[in-house]
Simulated scan of single mutants.
Amino acid sequence: MDEGTGFSAGRDHSNCKAELAMKVIQGRWKLLILRELVDGIQRFSDLQRALNGVSQKVLTAQLRDLEADGVVHRTIHPEVPPRVEYTLTNLGNELLPVLNSLHAWGERQADFNSASR
Rank of each mutant, 00 (worst) to 15 (best):
N15E: 02
N15V: 09
N15Y: 06
N15M: 10
N15R: 08
C16D: 11
C16L: 03
C16R: 06
C16Y: 08
A18G: 07
A18R: 10
A18V: 15
E19K: 11
E19A: 04
E19N: 03
L20P: 06
L20C: 11
L20M: 14
L20R: 12
A21T: 12
A21S: 11
A21P: 08
M22Q: 03
M22A: 02
M22H: 08
M22S: 09
M22K: 09
M22V: 05
K23A: 12
K23H: 15
K23E: 15
K23W: 13
V24K: 06
V24G: 09
V24S: 05
V24H: 06
I25Y: 04
I25T: 09
I25N: 04
Q26A: 12
Q26G: 09
G27F: 09
R28P: 14
R28S: 03
R28F: 15
W29M: 15
W29V: 14
W29P: 12
W29R: 14
K30E: 15
L31N: 13
L31Y: 09
L31A: 11
L31I: 15
L31C: 15
L32R: 14
L32I: 11
L32H: 09
L32V: 12
I33F: 10
L34P: 04
L34V: 10
L34A: 13
L34W: 08
R35I: 05
E36H: 11
L37W: 02
L37T: 08
V38T: 15
V38R: 06
D39H: 05
G40V: 13
G40Q: 11
G40I: 10
G40Y: 10
I41E: 06
I41Y: 11
I41V: 15
I41G: 09
Q42L: 08
Q42W: 03
Q42Y: 08
Q42S: 12
Q42C: 15
R43A: 09
R43C: 14
R43D: 15
R43H: 11
F44L: 04
F44W: 05
F44V: 07
F44R: 08
S45N: 14
S45W: 11
D46C: 09
L47V: 10
L47Q: 00
L47G: 13
L47I: 13
A50F: 01
L51W: 01
N52I: 04
N52E: 05
G53C: 07
G53F: 00
G53S: 00
G53K: 01
V54H: 00
V54R: 01
V54T: 09
V54N: 01
S55N: 00
S55L: 01
Q56D: 02
Q56Y: 05
Q56G: 06
K57H: 03
V58H: 05
L59K: 00
L59Q: 01
L59A: 07
T60M: 05
A61I: 12
A61R: 08
A61V: 14
A61D: 12
Q62N: 05
Q62D: 01
L63P: 04
L63M: 02
L63H: 00
L63F: 11
L63Y: 01
R64Q: 11
R64N: 12
R64A: 14
D65W: 06
D65Q: 07
D65P: 07
L66Y: 00
L66W: 00
L66C: 02
L66N: 04
L66D: 00
E67G: 04
E67W: 01
A68L: 13
A68C: 05
D69G: 00
D69S: 06
D69N: 12
D69M: 03
D69R: 04
D69H: 03
